[in-house]
Amino acid sequence: MTDTRWVDALSAEDLPTDDVVGVVVAGRDIAIYTVGDELYATDNICTHGHARLCDGFLDGHEIECPLHQGKFDVRDGKPMCEPVAEPLRSYPVRIEGRRVVLQID
């Protein structure tokens, strides 16, 4: 059985509007995205090249890697175009009170 827990990531006040922010949570480099009123979280490092996705361009539900312009769907980490082929790990995310928390196993 996998041990899962909700871990504090950042203040909800620090969330950007329709953009992405990088944070380190439980030793993992995570990207947290806001798209409208929705929150999403994935690993922050591109699976194709070692680039931080929080430095990329968010367009709707797609994050573009700043290194090779590959794109991922922030809702589930699915690769959207070449050169990326391997999906990103995604994490459940929510707001509790005034804090953003992630489910980490």
Rank of each mutant, 00 (worst) to 15 (best):
D105G: 15
V101D: 07
D14F: 07
D8W: 05
V84N: 00
T4R: 14
R52P: 06
D3N: 12
A85F: 10
R98P: 06
L53N: 11
T2N: 12
E64P: 02
V35D: 06
I32H: 04
L10H: 03
R99F: 01
P87V: 12
C46I: 01
A26D: 15
I104M: 14
P83W: 03
V74A: 08
C81D: 14
E13P: 01
I95R: 00
L10P: 10
V25C: 00
D105H: 12
D73R: 12
G22N: 08
D14C: 10
L88D: 11
R98T: 15
H61P: 02
C81Y: 04
R75P: 13
L102A: 08
I32W: 03
E86W: 03
R99D: 12
L15A: 05
L53M: 05
D29E: 10
E38M: 07
I32A: 06
C65T: 09
E86M: 05
R98I: 02
L15W: 13
P83A: 14
D3I: 13
T2E: 12
T17G: 02
V35T: 06
G60K: 07
Q69R: 11
V21L: 07
E82Y: 11
I63S: 11
G22C: 08
I104H: 04
G49M: 02
V20T: 14
L15P: 11
Q69S: 12
I30R: 06
L88F: 10
A9Y: 00
A85I: 01
G56A: 02
C54T: 00
G60V: 05
F72N: 03
V74S: 01
I32G: 00
V84T: 10
L39A: 12
H61V: 15
D73Q: 04
A31W: 05
Q69G: 00
I30P: 02
V74G: 04
H68V: 13
D14A: 13
A9H: 08
R98G: 12
D8H: 09
S90I: 03
A85S: 06
W6H: 10
V84W: 11
D55V: 02
E13D: 15
G56N: 04
A41D: 05
R89A: 02
V23C: 05
D8S: 10
G22A: 14
C65V: 13
V23D: 01
G36Q: 00
Q103E: 15
D37S: 15
V35P: 05
L58W: 05
V24Q: 14
P92H: 11
G56R: 05
K71E: 08
R99W: 06
L58C: 07
H50T: 04
C46R: 06
V7Q: 08
D43P: 00
R94Y: 00
Y33Q: 00
G77N: 13
Q69P: 01
P16G: 14
A12H: 06
R98L: 02
R94K: 15
R99E: 13
F72Y: 15
V35M: 10
G27Y: 04
V25N: 07
V84C: 13
